[in-house]
Design a protein around this nucleic acid. Structure first.
Lengths: 213, 213, 213, 213
DNA sequence: AATGAATGAGAGTTCATTCAT
DNA sequence: GATGAATGAACTCTCATTCAT
């Protein structure tokens, strides 16, 4: 029995279309300032239809976070496991990759929004800590430990160094999505240039002896 | 035991009480979610009284920023101007002082709030950039330039380094006030210890030659 | 007997019902003293519904003006354009028609309201001048000029005469809606009789030679 | 016992100063838009002091009306009683005098405000009808009757003619104080010129035979 | 299932009035 | 008596959510 497949397909695609629309708007205007009617409109449906799929604006938000972050978590872990040779190069490469894939794009906004709204959505915050923050930290932490064990890095305190590596990226992210539009932060340099400079500085402090600096 | 009088005239004390109440609520619920009547209630006055002192919710927020942040920036600027001798020590001391005075206390939440609400309140964002971000950046930037000129620091790119110095503090701040309540970030170390370790790492990368490391 | 349903969807009927309700309340209490919620209640809808149709109280008022006044001006203009023969008769007829349609009914109150509220709502005043006063004046002015050109009227100053023709109607209107309720103005005569007598008097002063007076 | 006379005098003058301030503001901004604090400020006292003299804003308004209108009523009556000779000249003169003294000045605004606010202050409206409107009408009415009896005027209906004489002045008044500020009414002519032209037109219609027109 | 008209709890703000000083 | 800080009811407008169609 051939049903109306186009209609059917649209209906199946609805949840994803709504999530995409919601993310785009949350990025543009933040969670509070985004009206649910706008989300529906951008997804090409009417207000009431949105509520058929997500019973409230809060639930919609949770669904967006879950949808947009789950993807990027495992990827990097695989990359690290495969890597051979000096850690410094890997670290350099990972930070650049992270910025390209996550920080720069929409997924990065989810991080920013998550920080912004964590207080309002405790349950979601827990989810985020478990699914994103902790894995990321242990990934970077493992990297550093490997470097220390191999003698490539100084015997720095691991946890603090993890923060040092993650902080500038998140900082950049927050600026881009908070004050970016209002100028006045890092006028001369692109985000990528800033990040490069920061990684170099960090590695300079991290390496046991900087061979050719 | 006389019950608290229904009406009191305490013109001088009101502004500070209102700012404290506002900050406390902004911390708890964010700017957007805090109703002006709540601020008044927490300060022990009626809704209308708030508007006698601050003509709008936006102005109240600005006053909080000025009261809780601008002060510390000015102080640090004075400290920097007076300082003689190596920059590294000054930087170490300033970051510790900042965390103690701002980051650790409620004042730091203003930073977090601002990042959260910047998109929704563009005018506030502009104000914050002018009042807090730019002054902080030029303060730290000047510090680094002095270090480079004196030969104490390597010839690092100033702007990126400014970010490197500021980022870990804000990162810490955001975690404390976003996910802090939900555990799971830096379990073993106190914020102060983390910060110390990070400063050391940064300076290690910054100093022209690390004399006795 | 079914009770009136709690919720009804009657998109087409709402605007007119809201305008009627608004006019009735503006008549009773003036513009400033009428709360938008009352308008909605009298139209049998909730507060929010009003704003679905008219985005602000000001726009509601403008819509009332357009609905209750602009229509009649356009009608009269058409009537004037079509008219052949002596102007005196047309003038007589127009004034009577205006009183019957506008002055006598609730629509006339819009004029009164506008005079009352002009100072408090400058933007509405401008709108009213553009939408009602100027068109009316040019309508009557054109009439008089035609009469003068054809030799039917004396060469009176047009602008002043326009005022003379409009003034008694507005005067009547103001009395009806200001002191009308409190008695004591023109006890013996009906408004229509008054108006007739006034028109005759005016025309007597206006006609080049009163043929059969 | 010489008390402090300056202070005493100021205190005695207070009510009048408050009424003057109130009138000035009612003229500028209307009743509703005038805040009681402004009235007090213009009179050079504090908000609370106003309430010592007039127990509410409404009572203040009533006092203003009573104070500003009572003066001008009797004057004209005396003038009419004295007059000898043709009525037309007297009428011309009275209208000009009325505009100069009342219409143009602050007293005129009271008339305008009274019309505006009559609905809100029924008791005051009754006062106004009895003290101002009826006396004025019988004054003008008597004038016309005299003219008719003497054969100077045609046998026009008195009441309607009274309206005709009063209407243009009030109309002018209302325009000056309603839309005057917003342009668009009688651009080319001054109020005085308009009034002159209108009187001429009226008398032209009124005189039994216009001797030398 | 989809729509969008209708709802109504609240939000920020104003200002006449009160009353502690 | 005078002051002006304090009050709180009232007002306009918004928007997440519901539900008749």
């Amino acid at each position: 029995m051939a049903a109306t497949p186009v209609r059917q397909r649209r209906k199946d695609a609805r949840p994803q279309e709504l999530l995409d629309a919601a993310l785009a708007l949350f990025v543009e205007k933040g969670f509070a300032a985004t009206r649910s009617e706008e989300v529906a409109a951008r997804a090409g449906v009417a207000k009431g239809t949105l509520y058929r799929y997500y019973p409230s604006k809060d639930e919609l938000f949770k669904a967006v976070v879950r949808d947009k972050l789950s993807v990027h978590i495992a990827e990097s872990a695989a990359q690290v496991a495969q890597h051979q040779g000096p850690i410094a190069g890997l670290a350099r490469q990972m930070m650049q990759a992270w910025w390209a894939k996550v920080g720069h794009g929409n997924a990065g906004v989810v991080c920013k929004i998550m920080m912004v709204e964590a207080r309002n959505f405790p349950e979601l915050a827990r989810f985020y800590v478990d699914e994103v923050i902790r894995p990321s930290q242990s990934l970077v932490g493992g990297l550093i430990e490997r470097g220390i064990r191999s003698g490539e890095f100084r015997a720095v305190p691991v946890e603090a160094t993890v923060h040092m590596l993650i902080a500038p990226m998140l900082h950049l992210l927050l600026h881009e999505h908070s004050f970016g539009a209002h100028g006045g932060c890092h006028e001369g340099m692109s985000a990528e240039q800033l990040l490069d400079a920061q990684v170099e500085l960090l590695l300079h402090g991290l390496l046991a002896r900087a061979p050719g600096t």
